[in-house]
Structure formats: structure tokens, C-alpha cells
Design a protein around this nucleic acid. Sequence first.
DNA 1: CCGATCTCAGCAATCGATCTCATACTTAGC
DNA 2: GCTAAGTATGAGATCGATTGCTGAGATCGG
Lengths: 331, 331
Amino acid sequence: MADLSIDVVAKAAGVHRSTVSRAFSRPEAVKSETREHILRIAEGLGYTMSPLAQALRRKTSTFVPLIVPDITNPFFAELAKTMTQAADERGYQLLLCVTNGDPAKTEGYFTAMQAMYAPFGIVAPSTKVDTDALKRFDFGHRVVVIDRVDGDSSVPTVTVDSRRGIVLALEHLRSLGHTSIGYVSGISGTHTAQDRMDAYLELSAEGSSTPLVLDSGSDPDAGARAAKHFLEMENPPTAIIAANDMVAFAVISALGQSGIRVPEDVSVMGFDGLALGARFNPPLTTVRQPIADMGNIAIELAEKQNLNGSVDHVVLEPELLVRASTSGPRK
Amino acid sequence: MADLSIDVVAKAAGVHRSTVSRAFSRPEAVKSETREHILRIAEGLGYTMSPLAQALRRKTSTFVPLIVPDITNPFFAELAKTMTQAADERGYQLLLCVTNGDPAKTEGYFTAMQAMYAPFGIVAPSTKVDTDALKRFDFGHRVVVIDRVDGDSSVPTVTVDSRRGIVLALEHLRSLGHTSIGYVSGISGTHTAQDRMDAYLELSAEGSSTPLVLDSGSDPDAGARAAKHFLEMENPPTAIIAANDMVAFAVISALGQSGIRVPEDVSVMGFDGLALGARFNPPLTTVRQPIADMGNIAIELAEKQNLNGSVDHVVLEPELLVRASTSGPRK
DNA sequence: CCGATCTCAGCAATCGATCTCATACTTAGC
DNA sequence: GCTAAGTATGAGATCGATTGCTGAGATCGG
């Protein structure tokens, strides 16, 4: 059980090291008879190849880092979960790297992953990605970003159409009869966050109503502040769109503390479609992002880039998910 | 920037490979003058040692796997977050491994980690841990479990005192005036889950009231079923203890769907103390587990076991966290 | 001033695999 | 039956580090 190297197996099978190696990684290069014999012996010994030694020699591995700012944020947790599976199915081993939003840690992961011969990596940022900084690293040339990036970027990206999501939310709310619809940003400086806000600003102005941003901070207290703001208004909106589900939770919670009920007194929508939202009180109406698809596509883009250098930008369609936190406006 | 090996640095510094190695990993064995020169050169080149090659040669690494069943469960996410930090501070690199509750995957991680020369690992299980199965693996002898395990086990463990937690919850509820207190299990077959349930059964019987288990399933729908059960009762309890925060969320949500309000109509308590609970509607009263401490201690126990074979079992104290989901019973 | 002790750095084997090259053995074609 | 073209396996260098051993100088006591 201890110290099972390729040489041990080779000896046990009465062949040379290199034949064992081939039996595992280049099956067609070895007579099927021999191969089966070797595999059987290996199996009996409980042998598996050392990923370390393999990576060292091959100068490439199957470790794929997923770099996220905060794993306690359910969005990233769901992303991690689905990507683990997606990676597995393609023969990769996802390595979850949590940065706490610290750029230094991100760089640390970059060099570490480079050293581990990761073929590529996926970054789900909490701030606008500095493409140039990325490119300073060798590894930065083999990264896919789950967010939009600036300009004519040469980094592959996956995002969902923020504008479309806001359209969906607005349409839903308007069809319910709302005309005064507020917004709470409360998420950090990613392009995606920016895009959602911009879309809200622009699209809500198109309706007769004037845009109303209850809070635009990016800290955990944004929801509470938004609620406070709401309570102090003379004519508060009858519906609120939150930049993401977590913020929506916070808003509803804070509102509830002051006796405001959702959706009876005010409708609230989220953006993300977290599984958690289904068990919120009330279950959250939201714009669903196809998180699983994002994960799969991120890996595909990475593989493509690695293969032929192509840099694609995929934009996915969001979807309205009506649950119970929205209803017609109070008469 | 590409292909920076120890030999490159050695050549650049005009010394032998082994001296460079020593400059990094055994500073006292090299003249400080030489060492500083080497370090400076290495710094300039942007050189870091290959963790792969190191692990291969040393037959030990700084990779520490944390094996959890589901990262979208906020309890495990918070554990992962705090443990990442704890590991970092001690010079380890936490590797998050998600099993989805699949024992085969767990075993896969075991052999993988063994192959990566991980010095030890941490397991946060979703089912009762089969100590014997654990011990079949070499690596199983270097694992710490975050849960209680059977019998005179030789596996180090960290847990919080389940009974004490239930006492805290019961005391809180009784001091509020509740006499009829129900319970919802809804979590999987860990010892901890079992202990909470047992404690409830025993302790609630001590009070005048008879134990009342609304649901004991372990799937995501337990909360909904418990709520249904509650609604069908002639004399429903005035308070409910949920086996963990997630279940409490689900119960409150399901209850809310039927017009039952918390805490006005019924008080509900959780168990875990998730950060998320503070933003639930209403903010959740719960029994807090010292998650960060658990992580730190788990690593300490692992190090100790590795050092001198000692096997400790640490039991931590939970803490009452009163928020807004409990109040006096309805008159 | 010489042998003994200590420091410090180089040498070379080694960890567990991969891969190019060389070699032995088939099989085929004429 | 003999050479040419394959096939299947073995030999050995290599990936990037570590480490026991060896030897060259430096230091020191007598």
C-alpha cells in the first residue's frame, strides 16, 4: 500500500517502466495483451499514477483553478459546484482558490498555478479585471473571465446579458402595474454590476418614471441603507430591483424589520436565481442566470483558447423566475 | 519568465543547484552573504520553487484537503472560508474537495491527496463516518473529522456540544414562555445531527411537554413537509427548533407561504449561526457554532496527530444568538 | 606550525513519471 | 529464404527539486 511507484508495478508485471507508462497513457502503443496484464497487476496493487510526477515531466497538468473572491457568497458557491462537475466530466480537477478580493492573493494563485502547470484557469472577479495586469503573467494568457472586460480585450469571457435581465425585471414589474421602480446596487465594481445599473438607469428613464437608486454602495450593509432610505421617502417606489439576490435578501430583511411586508407593501426582485431564493421568506422573484451553463462554457472557451488561440466572448440569456416576492402594487 | 528552474538561478548566481535549494529551505546552512546574493538574484528573476518537484522529492507537501459534501451549503462555505485562512497562516494550502455526498468521490480524493503527499486532511462529513473504511486508506490515518465519530475512535474530532446547544435553545424558548416546542430534523445522518435530535427528545421530555418531531427527513423538502405537518395539527407547537439554519429558513419560508408569520404566530430557531441568518426575514434566532474555532482546532489536531500520534477529541461550546425569529407565544 | 574541528559549497543519486531512440521480433513481399 | 517495413518493448535522459556525502578552506588549541 505504501510507496507504489511505476517501477514497482513494472517489476511485478515483468516489464519495463516505460511499458507501464504507455499502458496507462498511450494504450494504442502497447499490445493489448500486455496492456491488460499490466492493468490487472496495477489494479491488484491499488496503483495510481502520481499526478505530481506526471505534471512535472509532461509540463502540463489537469489542475484547473477557479479563482473567486468569496466562497460564502452563494453565487460563487453555486458556480464552484457546477464547475467542479463540468471540470470532472472533461477530465480536469477543479481547484478552488479564494482571494477575499485581495489582488495579491490572486497573483499568488497565478504563480502557484503556473508552477503546477495548470493548462488554464477561470477567474470570477469581484472588481473590474485589469486586463493588462493579467497579461503580465504568463498564466494570464490562459485565463477565462466570468464577467465582461474592457474594450477589445483579448481575454475570453462569459457573461449573461445584463441589459436583457433588467428588461425582463422591468417588464415583469410593469406588467404587474408598477410604475415607480427603485434600484439597489449593493454589489462590487464588476463590469456586470455596472452594466446592470446602467441598464436600469437607462431603461427606467424610458418608462415615464424617473430612475431611483436607493443605494449604490457595495458593502454588506447596502440593503439596510436602502431600506432606511425607502422608509424616509415621501413617495417610495412600489417595487424594487436589487442588483443581486443577496442584496434582495438584505433589503427584504431590513424592510421586514420596520414592518414593511413583501410583496404586500412593496415588491422586490433579485438577480441571480440562487437556489437559496426559493426558500427565502417570501420566495424570491428574480432573474435567473444560467450558472451551470456559464461554468461549462467557461471551460470550453478556455480549451479553445489553448488549442487555437481563439478568444471568444459568450453572452448568455437570462430568464425570468417568478416566485412570490412580487405582486401588483398596493392600491 | 518562462522555464525558471533552480538550475537557471544557480547559474545566474554562480553557485550550485544545491546551494540555491539550501538558501531557500535551510537558510542556516548557507553563509548569509551567499544566501542574500542568491535570494536577490532569484527575486530579480521572479523565481519561485516548484511545489510539484518539492513534494515529489520530499515526499511531503503543504496541500491540505478539506473534504466537504456540498459547498453551496453555507455552513460548509463558511467553514471553508475560515479554514482557508487558518491553513494559510500555518503555511498550508487548503484544497477544497467537494464530494456531493458520494463516498466514491471521497475515496477518490483520499487517494489523490495521498498521491499529492498531503500531510493530513480534514473531513466534514454528511453521513456518519465509517472509521474502519477510513482506516483502510493510508491517508485515513492522518485525518481529522469535524463531527463526532463512533466509539473509542482513533480519529481526532472537533465538534460543538450538541446537547448544550439544544439546552440553550430550549431555555431561550421557555424563558419566553413557550411550553410546546416542536423540532424539525431535516439534516443528514451525521452524529451531530443525531445528537441534536436525541438531546431534543430527551430534554423536551423533561419539561412537561411531550416531544414533537415535525419532520425527520434529511432532504431539501423537510422544511416544507414540516410546515405542512404544522398546519394540519390541531394544537401546533408555539415554537419550533430546526436542526440547522438552512432548515429553519425552509420552515419559515414554507410557513410564510401559508400565511403563518414568524415570530408572531410561531417562533422558529435555527442551529449554526450562519452569517446569512442575519439577513433572513426575519433575522434568525439561532445557536451559534464557533465555526472559525472549529477550523483552527481541526488543523491543530491534525498537526498534533502527525507529530506525536496523539488523538484528541475537542468539544466546543455553542452560544445563543438572539435575533428576531423568536418572541413570546401567541396568547 | 601542524593536525583537529567546523563551515560552507559542490557532487551525484533520487523522487515517479514521460518520451525519444535504439533494438528485437514479426510479418510481408518477391 | 532474404530483405524491407512494421510492431512492441527496453534503455536512459529528463522534469525541478532535496540531501547525504565529500572535500576545500578557515579557525583554533597546543
